[in-house]
């Protein structure tokens, strides 16, 4: 019996994922078509990237609530550089990544130096960025040919190279964001599970004082985690801007909840009971598969958030309720 329970904890979520795939492909044969598979992957890639960032902060027992707004702000900044300044691809990307680094450093400063609790610090950052992104454009979205406050027309446009990031497909089939997501997932996995830096981050997350007394540079690692989270969020923002081809003030709204949910669902993958990269990616995939399948079966769009919440709550009970550790 205990053995069954162990197995259930370990493989439950993966079995659920497989069962969903089998069910949807029987109900809707188009579900498993190559095109749809990549539609699913494309739809989850940005959320998965944000989830990987949150995973890094969760590993040091932090929490980054500003991921969604960092992504949105990066998207606006990249668009602004390209449309208003006509700055080109490289400048836009570097600006966006710079936003991520800066946000991460400020989050790190607030939590490490100012000792603001992580949730509160990043909640504050979230509000700050959501407001800040509206200021340069007086609250409007950014698109090619928009009129500026002086009355003239914005000179720039989204470059082909930039749009490539969000819209192109490798070998005509694999969307570029999916490739980027997979690369980041592998890097994050290797970093957290295989390197000493990752090991020390988990040590800090589990017992910060003990880690410090064993020689861990706690402050450095907490900064590192928030900078990682910030940079991953800006990568997500860049891909979002490249996909929709404009700087849309409202398109980052659901990213925070989806990203956090994916990372938390990830706790339950393979019985890890801790934040982990592969789990976060699979968590994002699980939500993507479920939403895509239900959409194909004509479930109304307004039930989506409810269903996501249901999966999250179930996964959390799975992790914390069944795990022996907490018994």
């Amino acid at each position: 019996m205990t053995n069954f329970r162990d197995q259930a904890i370990k493989y439950g979520l993966l079995v659920l994922l497989a069962a969903m795939i089998v069910f949807f492909s029987i109900a809707q044969p188009a579900f498993l078509s190559m095109i749809n598979v990549f539609i699913i992957l494309q739809s989850v890639s940005i959320v998965a990237i944000l989830a990987l960032g949150v995973t890094a902060t969760l590993a040091v027992n932090g929490f980054d609530l500003s991921i969604g707004s960092t992504a949105a702000f990066s998207m606006m900044m990249a668009s602004y550089v390209m449309i208003v300044f006509d700055g080109g691809t490289t400048a836009a990307i570097l600006t966006a990544l710079g936003v991520g680094v800066l946000v991460g450093l400020v989050n790190g400063f607030m939590t490490v130096q100012m000792r603001v609790p992580d949730l509160l610090a990043t909640l504050g950052m979230m509000f700050l960025l959501l407001g800040l992104q509206l200021i340069p454009t007086q609250g409007r979205s950014i698109a090619a040919g928009m009129s500026l406050s002086g009355g003239e027309t914005a000179p720039g446009k989204f470059t082909e190279a930039f749009l490539f990031l969000g819209r192109a497909r490798l070998f005509d089939i694999i969307p570029v964001p999916v490739v980027i997501m997979l690369v980041l997932a592998v890097i994050t996995y290797l970093f957290l599970e295989r390197t000493r830096h990752g090991r020390v981050m988990y040590a800090i997350g589990s017992n910060e004082r003990a880690a410090h007394l064993a020689g861990a540079r706690v402050k450095f690692y907490r900064y590192l985690a928030y900078v990682m989270s910030g940079v991953y969020s800006s990568i997500g923002g860049i891909l979002l801007a490249a996909r929709i081809g404009r700087g849309d003030v409202s398109s980052g709204n659901s990213l925070l909840m989806d990203g956090v949910a994916a990372a938390l669902i990830g706790f339950a993958v393979l019985g890890a009971a801790r934040p982990n990269a592969q789990g976060s990616a699979i968590g994002a995939l699980l939500v993507g598969v479920l939403l895509n399948g239900l959409t194909m079966m004509n479930t109304p769009y307004y039930t989506q958030d409810f269903i996501k919440g249901l999966v999250l709550v179930a996964a959390l009970m799975f992790t914390f309720g069944l795990s022996k550790k907490r018994a």
Binding site: R194, T195, R196, A203, S206, A211, A214, G215
Partner: peptide, 25 residues
């Protein structure tokens, strides 16, 4: 003690560098 860590990982914590190659353990 790092409660989430195994006996092994608890022991090695301060000296990970000495059996890592470019940070890979």
């Amino acid at each position: 003690i790092i409660p989430d860590f195994s006996i092994e990982n608890n022991t090695s914590l301060p000296f990970l560098k000495s059996f890592s190659w470019f940070s890979f353990i």
